[in-house]
């Protein structure tokens, strides 16, 4: 595959990360952190990608959920009560609105921190969690990106250890960071290779 040198967007330097939230929000996140780590937050474009994803999925879902309503209006169907037929698409939209409202907080709550011996990954607002993965435990790394991600130069990094419970995804980082992280993790993993 040709290795193309391209847009500055894909290069790391110029990109901005999401900023901090309200002080209370930050305090709350910091409360769980046992190491006072310095977190790298997702790329600023991550929010845009989330919004696009949400809207796209909302359109699709709403379209599907409109089917009973349309059939009802055309009087092809008589069963679903009108309120139910209306409620379905309305709920779908409401759900999306809720997701969009929460999205910035959720995105800000994400982050990773590369430490000497392990990688910390945090996520979640209401159920905040911090996962610690020692470099030596990583079995393999997976980098993936959907169409919108690529449009904005983002990627997702997934880490796998021998435990299925590990389940660590670093979402919304720039492709540049993802590639760097992957190489870094591979290298540190090698240095600190641990027995199973």
């Amino acid at each position: 595959m040709p290795e193309t040198e391209n847009a500055p967007a894909a290069r790391g330097e110029a990109r901005k990360h999401l900023g901090e939230g309200s002080p209370a929000f930050e305090r709350r996140l910091a409360a769980l952190d046992a190491w006072d780590s310095r977190w790298v937050r997702p790329d600023a474009k991550y929010l845009t990608v989330i919004v696009i994803n949400e809207i796209v999925s909302c359109v699709i879902w709403t379209a599907v959920l409109c089917v009973p309503l349309v059939l009802r209006l055309l009087e092809v169907w008589s069963w679903p009560w009108m309120w139910l037929a209306v409620a379905l698409p309305v709920l779908s939209v409401a759900w999306t609105v809720l997701e969009l409202v929460l999205a910035p907080r959720r995105a800000r709550a994400r982050g990773y921190s590369e430490r000497e011996e392990d990688l910390l990954v945090r996520q979640g607002v209401m159920w905040h969690r911090i996962t610690v993965v020692p470099y030596g435990r990583m079995q393999y790394v997976e980098v993936s990106s959907g169409p919108w991600d690529r449009l904005f130069g983002l990627a997702k990094v997934e880490l796998h250890t021998a435990s299925a419970a590990t389940d660590v995804k670093i979402e919304g980082i720039s492709q540049h960071d993802a590639a760097r992280l992957r190489e870094e993790l591979a290298q540190r993993g090698e240095e600190r290779l641990a027995a199973l």
């Binding site: 040709p2 193309t4 391209n6 847009a7 894909a10 990106s145 492709q175 992957r182």
Partner: peptide
């Protein structure tokens, strides 16, 4: 590594 178009995640 830096490429958008070829690498899945700009990862080459």
């Amino acid at each position: 590594p830096r490429n958008e178009s070829s690498g899945p995640a700009g990862t080459s």
